[in-house]
């Protein structure tokens, strides 16, 4: 049995003889105390700050407009809306406890802290779906919709890919299984949400259910940071543990993300088939475009043909709609450079 299949042991809370700056993200020596000024990967502090700066809560968004508009949606739109809502909620429900599970086995305290923040944000996402539901339909129907999500064979099939690896880690938490969990976490956060996002943004571009879309856009912004963090986590994990950095595991990434891509296309074909204005072929291209981005975040090659974003409207709302945080650098000194472009005589490649 390779060392990468040996169980990881839960680290003790405090290990006074070890340094505060951990010697590894797993199986490292770490005192358990966290001083952000003395960490192995200083960029993690920036990431932590960014996650906190994204803080939001569902109650800040007033649902009155959407409540009025709900009556004007077609029956199909209402049905798809509720099914997607509960399906996304079930994904977030998995993610909250999984992130805390991982936390127990990661030895670097700065990574533990980031997993804690991610877990908290997934809990907020989960709540936001409940908040949307409670504004629109009675409890009885909410419960029926959750049962529907639990029983739907296509939803179950796609969740199974993720669940198998999450459960495998819970049963036997080894470095290899942690790696597999992380890849599937990228599937969940970086691929599986997007048929749902597409539906809500599609409503929003017709000025329908815009408040719900604002929430979705906050969720997307968080998920983008999570998928980015997890891809960094995977890169560091493979670099620190060369036994994991094998051709087999790289193939595992390509194969597993490809499976998620096929399942996401299948789900989209099923859930979005009666929605006018979403071209499913185009959405297939979008999912491949998205997966190529995930590969590149992991430092790998495109797996699908390189293409431009075919659905530019599936995008986080511009920050003008969010609480913009300006850096001090450009505020403390007045700089008045004019915005220039290639028409000023240089080339933009």
């Amino acid at each position: 049995m390779s060392q990468m299949d040996q169980p990881l042991s839960k680290i003790k809370l405090l290990n006074p003889t070890y340094p505060n700056k951990s010697t590894g993200i797993i199986n490292g020596e770490s005192s358990g105390l966290l001083n952000w000024n003395d960490i192995a990967y200083p960029q993690m502090y920036d990431l932590y700050q960014t996650l906190l700066a994204n803080f939001w809560k569902a109650q800040e968004i007033n649902m009155q407009d959407d409540i009025k508009q709900w009556e004007y949606l077609t029956e199909t739109e209402k049905d798809v809306f509720l099914r997607i809502n509960t399906q996304l909620a079930s994904l977030d429900s998995l993610q909250t406890p999984t992130m805390t599970e991982v936390m127990d086995y990661v030895t670097d305290s700065s990574f533990k802290a980031i997993f804690a923040v991610i877990s908290q944000q997934e809990a907020v996402h989960n709540e936001s779906y409940s908040y949307i539901l409670s504004s629109l339909v009675p409890l009885r129907e909410q419960n029926e919709r959750f049962d529907q999500a639990k029983e739907d064979p296509i939803v179950r099939k796609r969740n199974q890919l993720i669940l198998d690896r999450y459960e495998a880690f819970r049963q036997h938490p080894s470095p290899q299984r942690l790696f597999e969990l992380a890849v599937n976490s990228i599937n969940l956060e970086g691929i599986y949400f997007y048929a749902g996002f597409a539906f809500f943004y599609h409503l929003a571009r017709q000025q329908k259910m815009v408040k719900t879309s604002s929430m979705i856009s906050y969720i997307q912004r968080d998920e983008m940071q999570h998928a980015y963090f997890v891809s960094q986590f995977v890169r560091i994990l493979l670099t620190e543990n060369p036994e994991l950095n094998t051709e087999e595991n790289i193939n595992y990434v390509y194969q597993t993300v490809d499976k998620a891509v096929q399942l996401e296309k299948e789900w989209a074909d099923y859930i979005l088939k009666d929605i006018d204005g979403i071209d499913l072929e185009e959405f297939h291209g979008y999912v491949e475009y998205l997966a190529n981005k995930r590969f590149r975040q992991l430092g790998l090659d495109n797996y699908y043909p390189a293409r431009e974003n075919p659905m530019q409207w599936i995008q986080v709302f511009s920050d003008e709609m969010m609480n913009e945080t300006k850096s001090d650098f450009f505020e403390q000194k007045s700089r008045t450079y004019t915005k220039v472009s290639s028409s000023n005589g240089f080339d933009e490649l």
Binding site: R296, L300, Y337, T338, D347, L349
Partner: peptide, 19 residues
């Protein structure tokens, strides 16, 4: 880009998506 255009002789810019 905007600063280099003002302060230097800016010839070219290049943006690459991820890796």
């Amino acid at each position: 880009r905007d600063m280099l255009f003002a302060q230097t002789s800016l010839a070219v810019t290049l943006k690459v998506e991820l890796t």
